[in-house]
Every structure is written in structure tokens, then in C-alpha cells.
Amino acid sequence: MEGHQGQGSHDTLALAQAHFDKGEYAEAEALYSAYIRQGACAAPVGARLGSKCIPEDLATAYNNRGQIKYLRVDFFEAMDDYTSAIEIQPNFEVPYYNRGLILYRLGYFDDALKDFKKVLDLNPGFQDAILSLKQTILDKEEKQRRNTEKNY
């Protein structure tokens, strides 16, 4: 029975990914949420890694569900999912990048900088993160310049 439950989890994740890839986000989100809720992955990080839960899969489920929320402009919910993905898989650079993009869009430049720098610590060749880091620095400097001008 246990093998079937593990296979069911894997099938749920694969089906969620297929819907995600086709742009069928409502279906994908429901399946990612079901995967996340499944008891096989509900234990604290590291507690049941020997069972059916694969941390990379769980982190991917959170990250991809976060992407769907991002596309819906549910930024804070998306950031919660990205943060969950990071907690499960701290060396997974993609959710740091995704969270950094939201932080940048919301004007939290210092926090965005931290996330983009973390991405580049993990993967120095991540070109989008290099560009995002540069743009964040420029926009932060521009914001500081405008604020300085207002005070004169």
C-alpha cells in the first residue's frame, strides 16, 4: 500500500507540472496544493526524508504554485510559497530569484538585493539574476537620489 501512495504523490506532481506547462494554472495550482497537503511531505524538513517525500519535488511544487500566484498578482501569497520552497531546499536558487522579483516590484530594494545576491552565490551564471541585481542597484540609487533632492 505504501508504494501506491508514493506513486500517487509522484503522479499528482507530474500531472500538476503538465497543467502548469500548458498554462492551465487553476488545475495546476489545485494539484500542487494537493501534493503539498499530502501527508508524505507534511513532516518537518529532514524528519521523514527516508519516506516518500523528495525535498526537491516539494520545493518545486511550492515554487511553481508561487509562480501561479505571482501571475495572479497575489504577491504576498507567492512570496510565502517561495519562502517555503527555500526553507525546504535552501540551495534551490529559483525561488530566491522569484521572491527577489516580487520584492523589487514592491520597492523593497534591500531585500531584493539580498535574494539576487543569494541566487548568484548559488549559481553565478544565472543571467536573469545578474541583470536583476544590476537593475535593483540602479533603481535603489535613483530612489535615494530623488529622496535627497526632495529634502533640499
Rank of each mutant, 00 (worst) to 15 (best):
L31W: 03
L31K: 01
L31E: 00
L31Q: 00
Y32W: 05
Y32E: 03
Y32R: 01
Y32M: 04
Y32N: 04
S33N: 07
S33R: 01
S33Y: 06
Y35E: 08
Y35W: 12
Y35N: 10
Y35R: 11
Y35M: 08
Y35I: 09
Y35D: 05
I36G: 10
I36P: 03
I36Y: 06
I36Q: 04
I36E: 09
R37D: 15
R37H: 14
R37S: 15
G39M: 09
G39Q: 11
A40H: 10
C41S: 07
C41N: 08
A42C: 09
A42H: 14
A42V: 07
A42G: 13
A42K: 14
A43Q: 01
A43Y: 00
A43T: 02
P44G: 09
P44A: 13
P44V: 05
P44L: 10
P44E: 12
V45K: 15
V45E: 15
V45A: 15
G46S: 07
G46L: 08
G46C: 03
G46Q: 04
G46T: 10
G46R: 00
A47F: 05
A47L: 09
A47V: 05
A47R: 07
R48S: 14
R48M: 09
R48Q: 11
L49I: 12
L49V: 14
L49A: 15
G50F: 11
G50C: 11
G50S: 10
G50Y: 14
S51C: 11
K52E: 11
K52M: 09
K52G: 13
K52C: 13
C53S: 13
C53V: 02
C53I: 01
I54K: 15
I54D: 14
P55Y: 02
P55K: 01
P55G: 08
P55D: 07
E56I: 06
E56R: 08
E56K: 12
E56N: 13
E56V: 09
E56Q: 13
E56P: 07
D57T: 06
D57M: 08
D57S: 08
L58A: 01
L58W: 06
A59T: 10
A59G: 10
A59D: 08
A59L: 11
A59M: 09
A59N: 05
A59S: 14
T60L: 15
T60Y: 12
T60F: 14
T60V: 13
A61E: 06
A61N: 03
A61D: 04
A61V: 05
Y62T: 06
Y62L: 06
Y62H: 07
Y62E: 04
N63R: 07
N63F: 02
N63C: 09
N63Y: 03
N64V: 05
N64T: 03
N64A: 02
R65H: 03
G66L: 02
G66S: 02
G66C: 02
Q67T: 12
Q67P: 01
I68Q: 03
I68Y: 02
I68F: 06
I68G: 00
